[in-house]
Amino acid sequence: MATALAGCSSDGAIRLFSNDYGARTDAGYNLPAIPIYKVDRKYHRQVVRYQTDEKPGTIIVDTSQKFLYFIMEDDKAMRYGIGVGREGFEWKGTARVALKREWPVWTPPAEMIRRQPELAKFRGGMDPGLTNALGARALYLFNKGGDSGYRLHGTPEWASIGKAMSSGCIRLLNQDIIDLYNRAEIGAKVIVR
Rank of each mutant, 00 (worst) to 15 (best):
2 A>R: 14
3 T>M: 15
4 A>H: 09
6 A>P: 08
8 C>F: 14
12 G>D: 08
13 A>Q: 05
13 A>P: 02
14 I>K: 07
18 S>F: 06
20 D>K: 07
22 G>N: 08
22 G>V: 00
23 A>F: 06
24 R>I: 13
25 T>F: 13
32 P>H: 06
34 I>S: 12
36 I>N: 02
39 V>S: 05
39 V>T: 12
43 Y>T: 03
44 H>E: 03
44 H>L: 10
51 Q>Y: 14
52 T>A: 12
59 I>L: 11
61 V>H: 00
61 V>F: 05
66 K>G: 03
70 F>W: 07
79 R>N: 03
85 G>N: 01
86 R>A: 13
92 K>E: 13
95 A>W: 11
95 A>H: 05
103 W>L: 00
104 P>R: 06
104 P>M: 05
104 P>Y: 03
105 V>C: 03
106 W>T: 06
107 T>Q: 03
110 A>C: 06
110 A>E: 15
110 A>L: 04
112 M>W: 10
112 M>N: 11
113 I>F: 06
113 I>R: 01
115 R>K: 11
118 E>G: 10
119 L>F: 02
119 L>E: 02
122 F>M: 02
128 P>L: 13
129 G>W: 12
130 L>A: 09
130 L>G: 07
135 G>E: 06
135 G>D: 02
135 G>Y: 02
136 A>T: 08
137 R>E: 00
138 A>Y: 11
138 A>K: 07
138 A>E: 01
142 F>P: 03
144 K>P: 11
145 G>Y: 12
147 D>P: 04
148 S>Q: 10
151 R>N: 12
155 T>G: 09
159 A>V: 14
163 K>P: 05
165 M>E: 15
167 S>Q: 14
168 G>E: 02
172 L>I: 05
172 L>D: 00
175 Q>N: 15
175 Q>T: 12
176 D>I: 00
181 Y>G: 00
184 A>E: 00
188 A>D: 15
190 V>I: 12
191 I>A: 13
